[in-house]
Simulated assay, not measured.
Amino acid sequence: MRPIKILLSILLVLLVVAGVFAWRLPADVGYRYGAHLLGPFALTGVRGTVWDGHADGVSLLGNDLGELDWHARKRPLLGGELVADVRIKGGEIDIAGLMTRHGDGSVSAEDLRFSVPASMVEPMIGAPDVHLLGTISGVLKDATLWTASVRNATGHARWSGAGVSGAVEARFTDLLSEFASQPDGSVAGTLSDDGQGEVAVNGRYSLHVPLISGEATLAARNGDPQVLEMLRHIGTPQADGSSKVVVEGRMLKAL
């Protein structure tokens, strides 16, 4: 019996040591062995622990987003899930919420609040001579990404200080959007203005990772001659004086 007791004691000590090591596992060590779990995201300047850490840089497919802070939850790991409160902040970018990587490889977001410069959307519209102005902010209430399919997504966004510059010059009042996932795995949304400006906007869009498409009708709300002249240079002029804008592109150039 004595050898068994000794063996059990050794195992107990090893478990305690392993637990302490895991509890204080350096974040850079964890990233070295778990980077493949982050998919298209890459980190630099990693420090702290795997539970509470910081990265000086986080990029998505080579697109720099800023710094990253995370606070991982320990209990979900027992069920094979990595759950963490994350915040990405850099310049005009501010993203924070709860992220979960499930055992099947899918990733979900909950109450993810975001604020990003509208210029980040420019690669989607495929018009290098058009630059987007303002800030897009909102809340992704819930979403699950599995391969190229987005499930259970709901949320809303506001484009503040909306405008375009470059080949055309235009300013709008705030634009509003509501979006939700569809049965085919895509995300569909609506786009409208807040009713306070001279340009009325009414549109819709569809995102099917990594492709995005959409169209919007722009009209002079009060028949302002200057607005009507501006609309002649945006999109395709319509018989009623409005203009139709059609967009097709990819979420990111590298996708």
Rank of each mutant, 00 (worst) to 15 (best):
S108Q: 07
A153V: 12
W23M: 09
I10A: 13
H156Y: 06
G57F: 00
A239Y: 07
W70C: 03
A27F: 00
R113D: 04
N202I: 10
V86H: 05
S160W: 00
D224K: 08
M124K: 02
L7S: 02
V58C: 01
L191A: 08
P40A: 01
W51N: 08
S192I: 13
S186M: 09
W146D: 15
D194G: 05
D52Y: 01
G105A: 13
R24M: 04
S192C: 08
D111W: 00
G90D: 04
T144F: 00
V107D: 03
A42M: 07
G45V: 01
M120E: 06
D111V: 02
L7T: 09
G103W: 09
V16I: 15
G79P: 05
I6H: 04
T173F: 01
L255E: 14
S108H: 02
R250K: 08
H71N: 05
G66I: 03
T236S: 09
G19A: 08
S137C: 00
L25I: 01
Y33C: 02
V246A: 13
L211M: 15
S160Q: 11
G249F: 04
P183M: 12
E178V: 14
V17G: 00
D52P: 02
N222I: 00
G223T: 02
A109L: 15
A157Q: 06
D174G: 05
E178D: 14
R87G: 06
I10F: 11
R232I: 12
I125S: 07
G53A: 07
S181A: 14
G19T: 09
R75Y: 02
L191S: 11
G48I: 03
S213W: 02
V83K: 13
T147K: 15
A162Q: 02
V187F: 04
V86K: 05
E81H: 11
D85N: 10
W51T: 10
M120C: 03
R87Y: 04
Y205D: 05
P117C: 09
D52V: 13
P128A: 12
A157V: 07
G34E: 05
K74A: 15
F114C: 05
M124E: 00
N202V: 14
R101T: 04
G39N: 14
G203M: 08
K74W: 10
L82E: 03
V50Q: 12
R73D: 10
G185M: 08
S115V: 01
P117G: 07
G223A: 06
G105R: 12
T135H: 04
K74Y: 05
S106H: 09
A219K: 14
G80I: 12
G45Q: 05
H102Q: 13
S213K: 13
S206E: 15
P76G: 10
H102W: 07
F172R: 11
T49D: 01
V164T: 11
H156N: 15
D174S: 09
G126V: 06
P3V: 11
